[in-house]
Design a protein around this nucleic acid. Structure first.
Length: 422
RNA sequence: GUGGGUAUAGUUCAGUUGGUUAGAAUGCCAGAUUGUGGCUCUGGAGGUCGUGGGUUCAACUCCCACUACCCACCCCA
C-alpha cells in the first residue's frame, strides 16, 4: 500500500475546497460586522500553556495531546483547542492596555487531539472561534452566541438546539460542590469507577457522565442554578434577557459542564442530531479567571470554538447546497502547433483582462478539447485552426445555445464578446 | 484505551458449496463525426482481490495475525 494520510486526518480535495472558501467568506463578513478582528497564533505552544489554561485534570491534557520535546529540549504541544493560544497572545502583547473590549476571531485554526476517529471526530480538525476580552456584561456572552447562530443560519443548517447553563464562579461554586458532594456521598457506592475518582477531583463532571447508573443518580442531584451567588445569578438572567430580546430559543441544561476547566458563569453548546453521536457543533462560555491564570491581569473573557468539519458535515447531511465556484468563461481550442502557441498567448491576455480562460496543455483532439471545456463548464469555446489563423479570425461558440460567430482574432474582440452577455 | 463491522478497478459495489481467462455500473482514453461538447452506440486501458502467514491438488472465497477505514463507548468541535 502506498503512503496514506495519518489516521484521523483528512485531505480537502480541489473539488470540495469551494465549500470551505464559502463558509470562510461568510465568517469574515459576519465577524467584520461584529467588530471582531482576526488573530493568528502558532500551531504549537509550550506545553505549560495548556497545562495551566485547559487544566491538568482534563481528559484533553491527560491523554489526548500531541506533545514532544523539540531539539532544544523544550516541551512543545500541538494546539488541542484555540482559546489558550489567543489568551497567551492577549497577555504577551499586553492587549489589555488598549481600550476594552478586545474582540477577536480565528479561522481555519488546526486543532490536534489524539483520539479514536469516528463520525464527526478527527485527530486534526479545524476551528472557527471567537474570543471577547474585557467585557463583563452578559451582552458579550449573547454576542458570541449570536455570531455562531448567524453563521449556521447563513450556511443554511437547521435543527440546531442552543443549550445554556451557568457553572458559577470561585465565589459560589464551592458551596455547590459541597451540596453536590453531600448528595452524592449517600449513593457513592452506586457510582461508576471513573465517577468515584471524579468525586474528589472534579465532582461537577459527574453530572456529565453517560453511565446509566450515574445518570439516574444525577437526576435527583442539586442544581447549580439554585446555588449561584447574586452576581452569577443576575448574569444568567441578563443573558436570558439578551437572548429573548432577539427571539433566540434556548434550553437551560443544568447538566452541561464542558470538558475544559477554565469556564466560569456562562457555558453553552449548540447541538445537532445530524452527524451521529458527536452532536456538539459549537461549544463555549465565559472564562473570567483564565487571563490571570496565564499570567495576565484580571480580565474577563468569553468565547466559543466551532468545528468546521462538523459544520460542513451537518450541511452535507442536511442536503444544503453551497454556491458552486466560478465556472470557466472561455476555453480556447486549437488545431496544430502554431494555433496552440497563439491560443496560449490569447488565453494569457484574457486572464489579464479578468476572465477565467483556459486552453489545451496535453495535445488533445478538437473533440476532446470541447469535451474538456464542457467539463470546466465553459460558457464559450473559441476555435483556432489553420483557416482562422490565415484569415485573422476566431470562431466563437456559445456552449449553451450552440450558436457560432466569427470574430476578429484579438483578445479585445473576444473579451468583449464573452463579457457582453452576462 | 474498550467493543462491533468492513477491506475486490480511479470511485460505488457484485463475485455461487473453495475450481482454471475476477465482473458490472460510473469515471478515464479513443472511435462512430477527415475541425465541435452534452444524448446515443462501439472499442480500449485500468486489479500484486489491504498486508503477512497457514490449511488444500487448488484460496478473492476457509483459518490466524497485523494494518487501515467505518461505527459506537469514552471524550469533544
Amino acid at each position: 500500500m502506498a503512503l496514506q494520510a495519518p489516521k484521523g486526518t483528512r485531505d480537502v480535495l480541489p473539488e470540495e475546497s469551494y465549500k470551505w472558501h464559502y463558509v470562510e467568506k461568510l465568517v469574515r463578513e459576519i465577524c467584520e460586522r461584529y467588530g471582531l478582528k482576526e488573530g493568528r497564533t502558532p500551531m504549537f505552544e509550550h506545553t505549560e500553556l495548556f497545562l495551566r489554561g485547559v487544566g491538568d485534570t482534563t481528559d484533553i491534557v491527560q491523554k489526548e495531546m500531541y506533545t514532544f520535546q523539540d531539539k532544544g529540549d523544550r516541551s512543545i504541544t500541538l494546539k488541542p483547542e484555540g482559546t489558550a493560544g489567543i489568551v497567551r497572545m492577549f497577555v504577551e502583547n499586553k492587549l489589555y492596555n488598549e481600550p476594552q473590549p478586545t474582540k477577536m476571531y480565528y479561522l481555519y485554526c488546526p486543532v490536534f487531539r489524539y483520539e479514536r476517529p469516528q463520525a464527526g471526530r478527527l485527530r486534526e480538525h479545524h476551528q472557527f472561534g471567537v474570543e471577547i476580552f474585557g467585557a463583563t456584561r452578559a451582552s458579550a456572552d449573547a454576542e458570541v452566541i449570536f455570531v455562531a447562530l448567524e453563521l449556521f443560519r447563513r450556511v443554511g443548517v437547521k435543527d440546531l438546539v442552543l443549550h445554556i447553563n451557568s457553572i458559577g464562579c470561585p465565589e459560589c461554586r464551592p458551596t455547590y460542590h459541597e451540596a453536590l458532594k453531600s448528595y452524592l456521598r449517600q449513593r457513592h457506592d452506586e457510582l461508576c469507577e471513573t465517577c468515584k475518582d471524579r468525586f474528589e477531583k472534579n465532582p461537577l463532571r459527574i453530572l456529565d457522565c453517560k453511565e446509566d447508573a450515574c445518570k439516574a443518580i444525577v437526576k435527583g442531584a442539586p442544581i447549580i442554578l439554585d446555588y449561584l451567588c447574586p452576581s452569577c445569578a443576575s448574569h444568567m438572567e441578563e443573558l436570558k434577557l439578551c437572548l429573548e430580546a432577539m427571539n433566540v430559543e434556548y434550553d437551560i441544561d443544568p447538566l452541561i459542564v464542558r470538558g475544559l476547566d477554565y469556564y466560569t458563569k456562562t457555558v453553552f453548546e449548540i447541538i445537532t442530531t445530524h452527524i451521529g453521536s458527536q452532536g456538539t457543533v459549537c461549544g463555549g462560555g465565559r472564562y473570567d479567571g483564565l487571563v490571570q491564570e496565564i499570567g495576565g491581569p484580571s480580565v474577563p473573557g468569553v468565547g466559543f470554538g466551532l468545528g468546521m468539519e462538523r459544520l460542513l458535515l451537518v450541511a452535507q447531511n442536511q442536503g444544503v447546497e453551497l454556491p458552486q465556484p466560478r465556472k470557466c468563461d472561455i476555453y480556447i481550442a486549437c488545431i496544430g502547433d502554431e494555433a496552440w502557441r497563439k491560443a496560449f498567448a490569447l488565453t494569457m491576455r484574457l486572464r489579464e483582462a479578468g476572465l477565467y480562460a483556459d486552453c489545451d496543455h496535453v495535445g488533445r483532439s478538437v473533440k476532446a478539447q470541447f469535451k474538456y471545456a464542457d467539463k470546466l463548464g465553459a460558457r464559450y469555446v473559441a476555435v483556432l485552426g489553420e483557416d482562422e489563423l490565415r484569415d485573422g479570425v476566431a470562431k466563437l461558440k456559445n456552449m449553451a445555445t450552440g450558436e457560432e460567430a466569427t470574430l476578429q482574432l484579438s483578445a479585445e474582440a473576444i473579451s468583449a464578446a464573452v463579457s457582453s452577455e452576462n
